[in-house]
Design a protein around this nucleic acid. Sequence first.
DNA 1: CTGAATCCTATAGGATACTG
DNA 2: CAGTATCCTATAGGATTCAG
Lengths: 121, 121
Amino acid sequence: MITLRDKTYTCPIDVSLSFVNGKWKILILGHLHQFEKSSYSHLRENLPGVSEKMLAQQLKELEGDGLLMKNVLSAKPYRVEYTLTERGRSLAPLTAFLSEWGIDYLKENGIDYLKDQHLYK
Amino acid sequence: MITLRDKTYTCPIDVSLSFVNGKWKILILGHLHQFEKSSYSHLRENLPGVSEKMLAQQLKELEGDGLLMKNVLSAKPYRVEYTLTERGRSLAPLTAFLSEWGIDYLKENGIDYLKDQHLYK
DNA sequence: CTGAATCCTATAGGATACTG
DNA sequence: CAGTATCCTATAGGATTCAG
């Protein structure tokens, strides 16, 4: 058992997972890896099915864990921009691998995502 | 939206995540990547805190998804052995990355896991 | 536009006892 | 040894409304 800040982990993988647990976190990170910067509404549109509560909550947790930053672009009208921190960008191999693995799996099942990507918007 | 076998996914990452969602699946996969083969009890001992229900359930799901295989070694006494399938082994980069990332993070926080691994058993 | 605040529920997950 | 079978609960997550 590893103990860090009053939390315990069974192994280093468990430590990493604690940053990305939650239904939408990895998808949010993947989105930001792809677009670099994104508004709240842009995130919402690209995460079909996400609720306001979960999007706001998981963005806060990701920010609190130092994986992304929120920049207020203007106060009136209120606009924000989310970007990855260096720590967040260090997870790029994770989202890249999951994306490639998923594409491979889809291909084995007759779906050419890259070619037909426009169909899945 | 991607549809495959009556399930929908927002993107390829979402497809991949559907294979590893669940509190213990990635830890199980990491365990099997490390040990190659493992008995039920060996898995349980190395996943501190896992309940019988979840271990059995997630093993079944992983088997059903074609990521691991269960081999019955002997009927009496009843002994089994879990091993990764080829598809399961194809996730090796995932567990490897999460492990390294966790080790790096721990190091930034004053914990040298590789050196002091024996302390965390 | 970007959330915060409620309210609600489904289910993931845990504890325990039991079986071949 | 390798699980099943129950029972139970906490909480992750969703729907909706309101606000700066």
